[in-house]
Design a protein around this nucleic acid. Structure first.
Length: 434
RNA sequence: GCGAAAUUGGUGAAGUGGUUAACACGCCAGAUUGUGGCUCUGGUAUGCAUGGGUUCGAUUCCCAUAUUUCGUCCCA
């Protein structure tokens, strides 16, 4: 009995065919080499985790819990698929008792969320995180911003970075209003995070909804339009601890960015909030220059308490990290590379009754670090050229009896149509051609 | 999750309550069996998301389900 199988991808998951996957691999390879040039080490953590580990950080009411994929194995263990790279990272740090801090790692891997699917939000997707544990202060933050800029530059994407401090936001909110509690602070920050999406009046309405008075809301919005110097002048002698710390950490970051000549790519943006409430200090977001899409390409920030609380062994684990939005990068690169055919294969060998010789020749040429494919279809030569043309393979070798007898063959350049004679005992000449 | 719209071949799509589902691209094959991108010829959906229902008859009407897109909520 044959079962009818419904040929379908799970909602929010996709097949990436070679044409797309070549671009995706290129992005990852490029970023990896940038990360490694900064001394960041690769780390891979399991996708499959104990459910309690994934859920441990949150109370039962948290919406995120609903998005964790739950599984059971044959031993009836309660498992789940990771929904981010940070939790497995924190777990890994906690398990390595001997680990020397600071620890710098990058990880590119799939994560899973059982949530609503929409553009830019899939059930299964790649995350690319770069984090440092064990370093406080602005220098490491500046280094990560530098790494961000270098990474995007390597991909030929022009970006700028917005930065702000969570402490500054907290401080300003407390400054304008006395009825704000530690519990209601995140609510206001969430509202501020919407600043670019909704109108000023709607913003004020929402702030009032959460308990702020109208004039307080107006004053807050005014502060959020100031630049750093003006804020510093205004609050130079403040006793508001959050405000003081926020201004301090921002000034230090700004100074070092200037020293590194990065300030032209970075802009202080007091309304930047970021949705997540685990951030504790400076926060950053990347945007594409001269690009109409307003969504950010990636985000990051300092989260000093997260790993500390997670591990909870008495030590403190200050941490700062950034992430690259691989799907947005992919969209940008895909829209550029429309016409160019990109084949990873350099040479196609077409055997005419010389299969084993062709396969051996392919190996010899591969030893020169070329990508070689042998056409084993047995079709007419014309078809093989058609194939090379459609795939964008730049060179073709026809290998028949004559070539074997004379111990030399012709290699044809598909673009210039030029044919070059190469003898079997002098294959290195190919290096000058390709 | 909630709301709306959509769903015809590999792709873009036209179309109709009733014998052969238009067109285009792609793909496959051929145009004197060792040379491609052009051109020409032929072949490419017993089938119109899936499951029910209405009907003499449905791809075309109705219901349910799935998926997709957009909006909204949420977003560590």
């Amino acid at each position: 009995m044959k079962k009818e199988i419904n040929l379908q991808n799970v909602k929010g998951s996709y097949d990436y065919l070679p044409k797309e996957q070549i671009i995706r691999n290129y992005i990852q390879d490029t970023l990896k080499s940038v990360f490694e040039s900064f001394g960041y080490k690769p780390l891979e953590t399991p996708i499959l985790c104990y459910y309690d580990l994934l859920a441990g950080k949150y109370d039962d009411s948290n919406d995120l819990l609903k998005e964790i994929y739950k599984l059971t194995d044959q031993g009836e263990r309660n498992l789940g698929l990771r929904y981010d790279l940070t939790v497995p990272f924190a777990k890994c740090i906690a398990m390595q008792k001997e680990l020397r801090l600071p620890f710098k790692r990058y990880e590119i891997g799939k994560v899973f969320r059982d949530g609503p699917v929409k553009t830019g939000r899939d059930r299964e997707f790649l995350q690319c995180d770069v984090d440092v544990v064990g370093l406080e202060g602005a220098p490491i933050e500046a280094e990560l911003i530098n790494l961000w800029l270098t990474g995007y530059k390597a991909l030929n994407i022009e970006v700028y970075i917005k930065y702000n401090s969570r402490n500054l936001l907290r401080g300003l909110i407390k400054e304008v209003s006395n009825n704000v509690t530690e519990n209601s602070l995140p609510l206001f920050i969430t509202v501020i995070d919407k600043m670019d999406k909704i109108t000023k009046d709607e913003l004020i309405d929402e702030l009032i909804k959460y308990g702020m008075q109208e004039k307080e809301a107006v004053r807050l919005l005014d502060y959020l339009s100031w630049d750093l110097t003006k804020l510093e002048t205004q609050f130079s002698n403040t006793t508001n601890e959050d405000l003081k710390q926020g201004l301090d950490e921002l000034t230090k970051l700004k100074t070092i960015l200037e020293q590194l000549n990065l300030s032209e790519h970075c802009i202080f943006s007091p309304s930047l909030a970021r949705g997540q409430d685990y951030y504790t200090g400076n926060i950053f977001e990347v945007y594409a220059k001269n690009n109409e899409l307003s969504c950010s390409l990636g985000g990051g920030g300092r989260y000093d308490k997260m790993i500390t609380n997670f591990i909870n062994n008495g030590s403190t684990y200050p941490a700062v990290g950034i992430s690259f939005g691989l799907s947005t990068i992919f969209e940008i690169l895909k829209s550029r590379a429309t016409k160019e055919k990109t084949s990873l294969t350099n040479i196609l060998i077409v055997p005419l009754g010389t299969t084993s010789e062709a396969l051996k020749l392919a190996n010899s040429i591969r030893a020169l670090n070329k990508n070689v494919e042998v056409d084993l279809t047995g079709k007419k030569v014309g078809k093989s050229f058609e194939y090379a043309d459609k795939e964008g393979i730049p060179f073709v070798i026809i290998l028949g009896e004559n070539e074997i007898n004379e111990q030399k063959f012709k290699i044809k350049n598909m673009i210039t149509k030029e044919e070059t004679e190469v003898s079997f005992d002098n294959l290195t000449i190919l290096n000058t051609l390709i």
